[in-house]
Design a protein around this nucleic acid. Structure first.
Lengths: 356, 356
DNA sequence: ATATGTTGTGAGACCGGTCTCTTTATACAG
DNA sequence: CTGTATAAAGAGACCGGTCTCACAACATAT
């Protein structure tokens, strides 16, 4: 009867103590591994604990110690290879330091991000890694700081917040990639991102709310300006959020008066969509259109032609963020800083001189 | 001073109660949203809570209620698209029911899985979804049941355990795919998996410790037998754990007396590796070798040729597992069962008649 | 008028650990 | 043989919520 039925209540230190005929305090000492206990009693308690199949209640433990041993991570979308790789890096760093990771998805929406942060704070995580959907609207992140919970930003930085951030070297990466294409003779280039298309045309790069995208666009634009090419801002397009939208963006772009001959994709998902768009339009890469994508995703190496990409070392970024957060949690004295992880251009076969 | 310094202790119900000049019990009632309180007092308390920026301590709440609102998920490898998609499905189902998800990686190793399960039980998760690395050695899963924590297995089932499992229809999928290739004239086929190569040759399919792989192999073998093809078991190869290993497996396979003309990949990672192996050996698909891969991963549609795959509807599997677990947690009376999610063959271009 | 019911609030036990403080037992010095 | 230091074990407060129970105030029934 009592064997098959779901055991009503779990075994506690008190139960173990009673079975071992010692006080609760003593049992707690050996079970919790603190204080001093004689070997004889220690064995007694351990035996009793094993017999009763005692498992400590981490919740209760967290409550009295004040630390949960959990790191909260808020990402845009776990399904995106960028984030799952980053999470892997974070997890590895966390586990190494004895922490566990709890993940929440924001879907890149500000209010979802807010409630995710609130929830994790409620769970009393020891620290938080957040990929802020927007770099304005950061009240909730201020709350985090005021609550005394260490915070590290990931992929995007918000200098006004005064917290650590781990990002790629986005401006530099964009410059390298853009220059690579310009050097090969391209005069009409376009940058395509999945960010929500806020207000039709882009007027001012400073108004892009995602710092990673902003810096990439700035890098892209700076190279075009430097090369004396016209209307650089008009070549920046947002809204490639799914295949259909991307098809529309690409089609519109290519039907312009002087269509771009080279495309720069803001992430590997956008890159894949662009690849498909071009394919479905019957355009071949790189003879008709050249392209470079951010992130060395697995698909980029097996297409024909393989795609030239900007390798972001996302795993390292995640690991670094995790390590930094652990250092903060453990009160290592460190200056607040922005850590940039270098990128590199992996040249494959998707860029050629523009055919005309 | 006290503004910038990390606020020493968080605001509790008692603090709010004092500020609102009511008892702790009353404040708790309005903050916790239970019991009956007059509107006047309710407003008082809410005002005080807002002023003090009160955030409930979910840890403490969990401790007294006995429920944490967390679902634990133990997966083989989050980086694998199969699992990240599944996690997405689980998360969506969980969030809809008011639960959150905490993820742990087992790396497909039994002892890592054990400690992950222990840890999650310690955190007092309300339920557990586990992708068991092996279908033998399941003491820790028995512990879960004995601890009274609802458990749902994912992707693999262990009938002896008597718990729900959500899996794909692996045998059927393998049969469909294998038959598809046999029907196109292939007489020498091979099945390649990333599972650890336990004891060189495979003697008995019943001894494969991963039920998903076992059923696929069984399906694969049954079709070969049915078609009167020799030595079906010898055509099953394990150990394609990374690119190098896969290269070795493929090379060995193709240098045999009667090399296979068609390959079946156990998952999309193995599929990708096989694709690369064939590419590096200078073999073209499908004229030299045909292949089918499990899982409709994004890369499979952009290769040349695009890969014919078995679509597993992993998101649905995850969602179903999440819903099932929630039902168990909430004590919905349901028979223990194995839920199979149907698969379908997505025909693309990687299978042709064997060239001779 | 008293009995009965309803509603809102307060007091305090409880969850399962940690940890401080106190008490008891043993060792060693004077 | 007493005094003091030291080690080991016990008693109980505490973390921050929930929740039961007691009780007060007021409304309605008899």
């Amino acid at each position: 009867m009592e064997d098959s039925a779901a055991s009503k209540r779990s075994v506690t230190v008190a139960d173990v103590a009673k079975a071992a005929k010692v006080s609760k305090a003593t049992a707690a000492r050996v079970l919790g591994g603190y204080g001093v206990v004689s070997d004889k009693i220690k064995d007694q308690v351990m035996a009793a604990a094993a017999a009763l199949e005692y498992r400590p209640n981490e919740l209760a433990r967290s409550m009295s110690t004040g630390r949960s041993g959990i790191i909260g991570v808020v990402v845009g979308d776990i399904e995106n290879a960028f984030f799952s790789l980053a999470v892997r890096g974070i997890s590895d760093a966390a586990r190494l330091a004895g922490y566990n990771v709890i993940i929440a998805n924001s879907g890149e929406k500000l209010d979802a991000e807010k409630s995710a942060v609130d929830l994790l704070i409620g769970k009393r995580v020891d620290g938080l890694i957040v990929t802020p959907a927007r770099c304005d609207g950061m009240d909730h992140l201020h709350h985090v700081r005021r609550a005394g919970v260490p915070l590290v930003l990931f992929d995007r930085s918000i200098p006004e917040l005064g917290v650590d951030a781990v990002t790629g070297d986005d401006r530099d990466a964009a410059i390298t990639a853009t220059r690579y294409m310009v050097d090969r003779g391209h005069r009409h280039l376009a940058y395509i991102s999945a960010m929500d298309d806020e207000d039709g045309g882009l007027i001012d790069t400073g108004r892009i709310s995602n710092s990673a995208v902003r810096e990439r666009v700035e890098g892209f634009v700076s190279v075009l300006k430097e090369a004396g090419l016209p209307n650089p801002l008009c070549s920046v397009r947002f809204g490639a959020t799914d295949q259909q939208q991307t098809d529309a963006v690409v089609r519109r772009l290519l039907s312009e008066a002087s269509p771009p001959t080279a495309l720069l994709a803001s992430d590997s998902l956008v890159g894949l969509r662009i690849f498909r768009s071009l394919q479905s339009l019957g355009l071949s890469i790189p003879s008709d259109v050249s392209m470079i994508s951010f992130l060395d995703a697995d698909w980029t190496s097996v297409t024909v032609p393989p795609i030239t990409v900007i390798d972001q070392r996302v795993y390292d970024m995640g690991k670094l963020a995790g390590e930094r957060l652990v250092a903060r949690i453990e009160r290592t004295p460190l200056a607040v800083e922005r850590l940039r992880v270098g990128t590199s251009l992996v040249v494959r076969g998707s860029v050629a001189a523009p055919g005309r």
